[in-house]
């Protein structure tokens, strides 16, 4: 395939992926908006008023970046894992496998779908947040880059989960038992500075902490971690997961006999 044909193929996969989640927007876009509104009402307004300021920001303002990023993480992951596994389950992944589209384009196409949903939900949740609190913007570049890179990272993780999944149960195990705990313990609702030293050290092993704090730096200008370390961690994970996902695709793991 020449360059233009590859571009057409990528666009076909991306359009298919975007149409998929857009067709079922009541399942994909609306629920995170409602959930986030509930977080703001319960944690921000009711409990947050008792907490006081964190790093000089009202509690509700402080948790906004974490809530947005948490939504982006879960939706990027969920989009790719469910789309890819469904394609495997219904065998319509074969539509791409029989075509001359290179494996890396299949991967990028699915990641593009995850990114599109992650960003769409991120924007929707940000609009909801603006009904509760003003959102400062310290660095547009940092905020946008962290948002996009994090979405890509978890889209890749979802893709790998989708490759390994052998049943619909398998696509919910990682989000339930790994992703959700890591996200909740990743400093979405608190600053690690509030934790005892031992738990601070433990928290630093959680990669999501770096993403949440880097995004928080983009919006609020405060972070519990070094920004360069956060970028290095995100980019490192992306490179590792991309290579691994492509290796699995090239081997045909779970999709070719």
């Amino acid at each position: 395939m020449n360059g233009h044909a590859q571009y057409v193929a990528f666009k076909a996969i991306l359009v298919k992926e975007v149409l998929r989640f857009a067709r079922i927007w009541i399942q994909t876009i609306l629920p995170p908006m409602i959930t986030t509104a509930l977080y703001f009402v319960i944690f921000g307004r009711l409990i947050g008023s008792q907490v006081g300021d964190v790093h000089g920001f009202q509690y509700m303002e402080y948790i906004v970046p974490g809530l947005i990023l948490m939504t982006v993480i879960t939706n990027s992951y969920a989009n790719v894992v469910s789309s890819f596994y469904s394609a495997k389950f219904q065998h319509n992944i074969e539509e791409m496998l029989v075509a001359p589209v290179p494996n890396y384009l299949i991967l990028i196409g699915f990641i593009g779908g995850g990114l599109a949903r992650g960003l769409a939900v991120g924007v929707a949740v940000t609009i909801v947040a603006l009904f509760f609190t003003p959102i400062p913007l310290h660095s547009l570049w940092v905020a946008c880059s962290v948002l996009v890179l994090t979405s890509i990272l978890f889209s890749l993780a979802g893709f790998i989960n989708g490759i390994y999944a052998k049943s619909f149960d398998d696509i919910s195990v990682i989000p339930t038992f790994v992703l959700t705990p890591l996200t909740y313990l990743g400093g979405v609702f608190y600053s690690v500075a509030m934790l005892p030293p031992f738990w601070q050290s433990i928290s630093l092993a959680n990669p999501i902490l770096y993403m949440v704090n880097a995004f928080r730096y983009g919006l609020l200008g405060v972070s519990d971690v070094n920004l360069a370390v956060a970028y290095a961690a995100i980019l490192g994970f992306i490179a590792g997961l991309f290579g691994f996902a492509l290796h699995l695709l090239n081997r045909g793991y779970g999709i070719r006999s």
């Binding site: 395939m1 193929a9 076909a12 219904q90 074969e94 539509e95 029989v98």
Partner: peptide, 29 residues
């Protein structure tokens, strides 16, 4: 290839299934 088992996304419209497949071969929309 016309496989033995149905292997398309049953929730996609007919036209979209055919047009998407062409896209995978680099054929403009």
């Amino acid at each position: 290839l016309v496989p033995q088992e149905f292997n398309f996304n049953i929730f996609e419209p007919v036209m979209e299934i055919v047009v998407s497949q062409a896209g995978y071969y680099g054929i403009p929309r």
